[in-house]
């Protein structure tokens, strides 16, 4: 498939789980440990999809989505927020910042792939 996904999470185990699942499905995956790192990477690189955790040090996922949307080359890139919070209120925050959608944690590899397949 060759689509490139940027996965952002401060937890190494979550990153590995996402990485493993997506790579096994044939995606190319770039990783970042927080919003700042992701944003710095994104300034010079493109991705077909961004997956980001919400709670992260330095820059949280919602701010990251907002910052990415402000970049020309990320204006039309799908962005999904990984969240443990399933209330509408949280989701609305994500939408307002420009997220395409969300995946509610905990999710298993199959759910992750199904959700990703929905946008790219």
């Amino acid at each position: 498939m060759g689509k490139r996904i940027l996965a952002v999470d401060d937890s190494a185990s979550m990153r590995q789980m996402v990485l493993f699942t997506l790579q096994a499905a044939g995606y190319e995956v770039a990783q970042a440990g927080d919003g700042i790192e992701a944003l710095n990477w994104a300034r010079t690189s493109t991705a077909d999809l961004v997956l980001t955790d919400v709670h992260m040090p330095r820059m949280d996922g919602i701010t990251l989505v907002r910052e990415l949307r402000a970049l020309d080359h990320y204006k039309l890139v799908p962005m999904l927020v990984l969240t443990t919070e399933s209330s509408q209120e949280r989701k609305a925050d994500g939408k307002r910042a420009g997220a395409t959608g969300w995946i509610v944690k905990p999710f298993n590899p199959a759910q992750l792939l199904a959700t990703v397949a929905r946008v790219i």
Binding site: D10, S11, S13, M14, M17, D53, H55, T84, K105, P106, F107, N108
Partner: peptide, 9 residues
């Protein structure tokens, strides 16, 4: 929070 998310996953 991270620990909770990971444990659930």
């Amino acid at each position: 929070h991270s620990m909770k998310g990971g444990a659930a996953t």
